[in-house]
């Protein structure tokens, strides 16, 4: 699915990622943890193709092709989805309108017919239930006036509608209350399938109680210092990151 080799990424001339290796197979869930500023969001952004994130070395292979040659919207249509750490507000643009444009762009790319209003609404209703999204959010502007937690929930709702192959969740759990975390995690779990892979960026082991990862990686100062099974997250929770750094030094 996704194979990252010796990835170096610079932002504004400053090297942030310094040789990341990561291999995600279809159906797998990988958790990426690490201290603030270690480069987790940078990795997520470079996968999504954000401007200004320059790959200086290494490669990103996605479904057999070089991901770095694709524009952001092409990546999205090929099935790469990023749930943003800080979803942006777009005043005046209807939430549901954006989603319909997105879904139809993706369907068109796949050679599928566009959904008409009725089919689209049926799909939306179904997926809204999945993340218990209140109906009135649909008619509101994209993320405008949403609370922090509501924005995160909206990201997962979009994920549920767009059904990507590779979803990167950048701290989707931060800002969610305990009940919302459970709802969102249940939603994500129900979207898991052998063809869909997940990369979860998180600071908290709690999320991983709900969404059980196949692997946990520790990213520190632009490098993956340690990888392990789900028990690694528990250990990090108990001991912090210093021991990982010390061991790697």
């Amino acid at each position: 699915m996704l194979e990252i080799k010796n990835l170096h990424v610079a932002v504004d001339g400053k090297e942030i990622l310094k040789g990341v290796n990561l291999h995600v197979r279809p159906g797998e869930v990988h958790a990426i943890m690490g201290p603030n500023g270690s480069g987790k969001s940078t990795l997520a952004n470079v996968l999504a193709g954000r401007d200004g994130y320059v790959v200086t070395k290494g490669e990103i292979n996605y479904l057999g092709r070089d991901l770095t040659t694709l524009e952001p919207e092409e990546r999205a249509r090929e099935g790469v989805f990023l749930a943003f750490q800080y979803p942006v507000e777009i005043p005046g643009v209807n939430n549901i309108y954006l989603l319909k444009a997105a879904l139809n762009a993706i369907r068109k790319h796949r050679g599928q017919p566009e959904l008409d209003a009725v089919e689209f609404l049926a799909l939306v209703r179904d997926r809204m239930g999945l993340v218990k999204m209140p109906e009135d959010f649909m008619s509101r502007s994209v993320n405008e006036g949403f609370s922090g937690g509501e924005k995160k929930r909206n990201e997962i709702f979009q994920l549920a509608v767009l059904e990507p192959r590779l979803a990167i969740l950048d701290e989707t759990d931060s800002g969610l209350d305990i009940d919302a975390l459970r709802v969102v995690a249940d939603g994500v779990n129900s979207l898991r399938n052998p063809e869909r892979s997940l990369v979860l960026v998180t600071h908290y082991q709690r999320l991983l109680d709900y969404i059980i990862p196949d692997q946990v990686h520790v990213l520190s100062d632009g490098r993956i210092l340690k990888s392990g099974g789900k028990e690694l997250a528990l250990e990090l929770e108990a001991r912090g990151y210093d021991w990982v750094r010390a061991a790697a030094a």
């Binding site: 952001p72 990546r75 990023l82 989603l99 444009a101 997105a102 762009a105 993706i106 994209v142 767009l162």
Partner: peptide, 15 residues
């Protein structure tokens, strides 16, 4: 904003 544009593009919508 670049971030608004990127958000839309990340969802598959042309710039």
């Amino acid at each position: 904003g670049d971030d608004q544009l990127f958000y839309c593009r990340q969802r598959g919508i042309a710039a």
